[in-house]
């Protein structure tokens, strides 16, 4: 209330003051535009004698910001390179050590196998979920529900200890005594098998939802047109729907794959020799904990960077037809960036 009182008092005053000014201001301001009183007005002679080029506007705040961020970056870099405790020498020594590279290979192997299998299974689960059969769709729903509800760590340990629940795994006709093949579960489920099973099934549960979302994002009219043209169902899915769904699937799918690269580190609980487990084994022996963690970190960054570049180009590929002109590749952008720079500098000279 206290604040409202002054405004109600000011308001009429403003109106009284602005009233007469508003009436007379129209001719006054239009006159001003014609009178050469400021820098932005000019006579016809000035236009004719202009020097070529345009001097760009100044952005002082941007310069201050740039300086602050630049200083911070410099400080971080300085500490990274001058603080001896980072032990970059040790990092360099272990970065390409044979055991580390072998671990890296295992990490990549797990990522590729589980990524591919996970997304294939996820695609099937997504189709099941969208199918007209209530059994298919509820089985798919239940699968996603269970595997998204339990921690990956628990799943991995469960798979590894499957031998405790089921001593033997056999292939035969269910509910009959007919078996073609039988094996001890503990032989079948090695560390590798447990890791692949756990990561794949978990990945499938997530990717099923991502793919389903992508398929749902495609306009119904597309399916209708394909059906009206008599295009067979499999071709309709792979040629018409999936390529369009890819646009919304890809960003999240790459999130998932990048997550999976780092997620493979969780299988160290099975004492499986991937990158993270390998560096752990090394630093427990050499006590160089931080440098070795840095080794792993750097390798994860390298993998993720490669994936990010791949993501850019794959997304660009699938944006064909969705945008009028494709965005520039980084190389093209760089070239244009420098081209413009050159032009501006020539202009200001």
């Amino acid at each position: 209330m206290g604040a409202a009182t002054p405004t109600t008092q000011i308001d009429p005053e403003l109106h009284e003051e602005s009233g007469p000014i508003a009436e007379s201001s129209t001719p006054a301001s239009s006159q001003e535009q014609f009178n050469p009183t400021s820098e932005s007005t000019f006579g016809p002679d000035t236009l004719a004698s202009l020097r070529p080029g345009i001097i760009p506007a100044r952005h002082p705040a941007r310069w201050v910001g740039t300086a602050v961020v630049g200083l911070l970056l410099a400080a971080i870099l300085y500490s990274l390179f001058t603080n001896p405790r980072w032990e970059w020498g040790v990092v360099a020594q272990w970065f390409t050590a044979e055991s580390v590279i072998r671990g890296l290979g295992e990490t990549l192997k797990l990522t590729i196998i589980c990524g591919v299998l996970g997304f294939v299974l996820g695609f099937i689960l997504a189709l099941m979920r969208l199918s007209a059969s209530p059994l298919f769709s509820s089985v798919s729903w239940t699968f996603s529900w269970i595997f998204r509800s339990t921690p990956l760590l628990v799943q991995l340990l469960l798979w590894y200890n499957l031998g405790y629940l089921y001593e033997k795994v056999s292939l035969g006709i269910p509910f009959t005594s007919l078996t073609f093949f039988e094996i001890n579960t503990t032989t079948l489920i090695s560390q590798f098998a447990a890791a692949v099973l756990g990561l794949t099934l978990n990945q499938a549960a997530y990717s099923a939802e991502i793919i389903r979302g992508g398929i749902l994002s495609v306009d119904q009219g597309q399916l209708e047109a394909a059906a009206a043209l008599g295009i067979p169902p499999w071709r309709r899915s792979t040629r018409i729907v999936l390529p369009q769904a890819m646009r919304s699937i890809l960003p999240t799918a790459f999130n998932e794959i990048i997550g999976l690269v780092k997620g493979t580190s969780i299988v160290y609980v099975l004492a499986y020799g991937e990158l993270f487990y390998t560096v752990q084994v090394i630093y427990s022996r050499t006590q160089q904990v931080l440098p070795l963690l840095l080794v792993a970190t750097c390798w994860y960054i390298v993998i993720t960077s490669v994936l990010s570049v791949a993501q850019y180009y794959i997304e660009r590929h699938y944006s064909k037809g969705a945008v009028r002109t494709l965005p520039d590749t980084p190389a093209q952008k760089l070239r244009r960036f420098f081209t413009i720079r050159t032009r501006t500098t020539i202009g200001t000279r």
Binding site: D219, G221, Q222, E224, A225, A226, A227, A228, L229, G230, I231, P232, P233, I240, P243, Q244, Y318, K320, G321, A322
Partner: peptide, 23 residues
């Protein structure tokens, strides 16, 4: 469905919203 699809190839259809495949 297979037979229906084959029959549909005898009938062309043009939609209000074109429904061209954008990709």
């Amino acid at each position: 469905e297979k037979e229906v699809l084959r029959q549909r190839t005898h009938v062309g259809m043009v939609f209000q919203n074109f429904n061209l495949f954008p990709h």
